[in-house]
Design a protein around this nucleic acid. Structure first.
Length: 577
RNA sequence: GUUUCCGUAGCUCAGCAGGAUAGAGCGAUCGCCUCCUAAGCGAUAGGCCGGGCGUUCGAAUCGCCUCGGGAACACCA
């Protein structure tokens, strides 16, 4: 039941205000002992010419407010506080979660709608560092969130697989390429010759010429150059896919810059036809003065294309192909202006879908006082971070297993360490608002206490452990009577139920603002509430059988919620740890 | 210089379509494993919500100004 709108309609009837106004006014009190919903009477004071305290008292004492699922309506100063009956809420929430299982939180909000999510988008032949993880993790999570809400989601990896750097790579490869190194660790080797090219280029201008020629040949479709380019691309993709597999990330397509390059001329023609292109300082630009933005360069002064023209071509192609309802770009904040310009050009050119394009920016990952820079070697590879995290997790698991005397096979230990270790890394990217910068520190990345994935997974494993035990002693907690669930009414049990009941809204909120942290925050609240309850109340040794069964059902609900929440973040769960 | 984001506890961050005593986690101090996993739980300490002015019955939240920090600003993406 939607308690909030039920209460709102009562209040609307009483106050003669319209439903929307009341819904907006209704709030959640700062502390749970003040009730579940509160109606402030300040705004009514004017129209009714009465003190808000009096209005509040009148509402609270009116008989129309009574309802069996409302345990109390209380006037506290200028507020009317509504208390939902704990037993009713408990039945409602626990039943719903446990009967729906994995389906809990799903909705038809996005039914029939298509959303495109462009994310990850690494550059071919460049190392995949912890900065790239940001787009990958946020994009993956958003894709899952939209899918959960019923949208048709297309996951797009817009690879940086074109441009003059490939001319350089071809030249460098022919001069210094080492076949063995290339096949054993392709990106290291490609990076090595790329760096070498830049060093040598300073003293040897012929290299620059050669690179330019090679890129021209590549563009013209010369067989040898295209074959090399394709080889570099394929090799890089093998490496990237290795990382994606580890993280459980997948894509529907890898159409990168190269894919769209032959679609640019038509876009340029179109802009010309619509008289939007102007010459400025030798380049062809679209002026955006009316949007209070600098002009968007479409063609460089040498007549070649640039990333804005590629993104325009891509957006138009995507609309024609998918007729998306939403097209989001999970790309770092530094490119905010670029996307604003591209969207504005689309708008100016008369494409209404520009309104449905959105740049979902995120902060930088940096060292203290230092920006990541491939050139200076100030980078941490995502692979290395994952490995470190897994190794540390493994140590902890082994130590715990020894202390607790639990038997675990190496295989199981490795499996748990991998899931928990990777989850820990993923969680650090989705625990705060995405626009926050992350200051990278090994110490913080590898801290597994408090608001971390290991904490959440640990809580899950705890609930699983209890449920297994219940199963093994033959205690059934499924399909139980509602009156039993109504026993879940202590402060601590109610806090858990309250947290669980907010989970659905968290998913919707996450999609609305493209912020996965709505979900991480909510499951953290659930886990904390559960652990508090767990520490103070016995579940399997509860006073009565009814209470035991009800608590087990609560356990199951918590376990379902944490699992699906973590899943939406791209984090796996383990049965014990 | 222009645009934009940020400034909340020692640190990392929530809260910001205005509302009741500003919340978490880490760190610190002190407690809790004969009891369902201590990667856990409890308690204590810690804040003029950068500063000022304004709007309002009411401002961490809205507006203006100011200080401090990050980012972007034409032929890289």
């Amino acid at each position: 039941m939607d308690y909030k709108s039920e209460i709102a309609s009562k209040l609307a009837r009483f106050t003669q205000l319209d439903m929307d106004t009341v819904m907006n006014l209704l709030e959640v009190p700062p502390r749970s002992d003040m009730g579940d919903y509160a109606f402030p009477c300040f705004t009514l004071a004017k129209s009714m010419h009465k003190a808000p305290q009096m209005i509040s008292a009148e509402i609270a004492s009116d008989s129309s407010m009574g309802e069996k699922w409302i345990s109390e309506v209380k006037s506290v100063g200028p507020y009317v506080n509504f208390f939902i009956d704990r037993g009713v809420l408990a039945c409602d929430v626990v039943n719903k979660i446990n009967s729906l299982g994995d389906e809990y939180g799903c909705s038809k909000l996005g039914e029939g709608k298509t959303v495109l999510v462009e994310f990850s988008s690494p550059n071919i032949a460049k190392p995949f560092h912890v900065g790239h993880a940001f787009s990958t993790i946020i994009g993956n999570s958003l894709s899952k969130i939209y899918t959960k809400l019923g949208y048709n989601v297309v996951r797009m990896n817009h690879l940086g697989d074109y441009g003059t750097q490939f001319g350089k790579l071809i030249t460098a490869y022919r001069l210094w390429g080492d076949e063995d190194a290339l096949s054993s660790s392709p990106i290291d080797e490609l990076l090595r010759i790329y760096v070498k090219f830049h060093e040598e280029e300073k003293n040897d201008p012929s290299l620059t010429t050669s690179a330019r020629e090679n890129f021209k040949k590549l563009e013209d479709g010369c067989e040898e150059e295209v074959a090399l380019w394709k080889r570099f691309r394929d090799m890089s993709l093998v490496v990237f896919n290795g990382i994606y597999d580890r993280m459980g990330v997948s894509f529907d397509n890898y159409n990168g810059e190269s894919f769209y390059s032959d679609k640019i001329p038509a876009v340029v023609d179109m802009l010309k036809e619509r008289s939007l292109l102007e010459e400025s300082e030798g380049a062809q630009v679209v002026k955006l003065d009316e949007f209070n933005m600098p002009p968007c360069i479409i063609l460089k002064s040498d007549g070649t294309t640039i990333y804005a023209s590629r993104d325009l071509a891509a957006a138009i192609y995507r609309y024609n192909t998918y007729h998306f309802d939403k097209n989001i770009y999970v790309v770092g904040i530094p490119q905010a202006l670029h996307f604003k310009q591209v969207f504005s050009v689309l708008k100016k050119a008369g494409f209404d879908f520009a309104e449905n394009c959105e740049h979902v920016g995120f902060g930088l990952v940096k060292f203290k006082n230092m920006k990541f820079s491939t050139r200076d070697g100030n980078i941490v590879l995502l692979e290395d971070l994952l490995n470190e995290s897994i190794a540390k997790t493994k140590e902890i698991i082994e130590a715990n297993a020894r202390n607790r005397g639990t038997e675990m096979s190496d295989e199981e230990i490795n499996d748990i360490a991998t899931k928990v270790g990777i989850g820990a890394v993923v969680y650090t990217y989705v625990k705060s608002g995405r626009e926050r910068n992350i200051v990278f520190s090994w110490e913080e990345m590898l801290d597994f206490e408090g608001d971390t994935a290991p904490y959440l997974i640990y809580t899950y494993a705890r609930t699983r452990s209890i449920l297994r035990k219940a199963d093994s002693i033959g205690v059934s907690y499924r399909n139980i009577d509602e009156s039993v669930l109504a026993l879940l009414s202590s402060d601590e049990e109610s806090a858990v139920i309250k947290a669980l009941s907010d989970f659905e809204d968290a998913i919707v909120g996450a999609a609305k603002s493209n912020e996965p942290f709505f979900i991480s925050r909510q499951i953290a609240v659930i886990a904390r509430a559960f652990n508090r309850f767990y520490n103070n109340s016995s579940i399997l040794s509860a006073d009565t059988d009814e209470s035991k069964i009800a608590r087990l059902a609560l356990c199951e609900a918590v376990c379902n919620c944490i699992k699906s929440g973590l899943n939406l973040l791209g984090i796996d769960v383990v049965e014990r740890m």
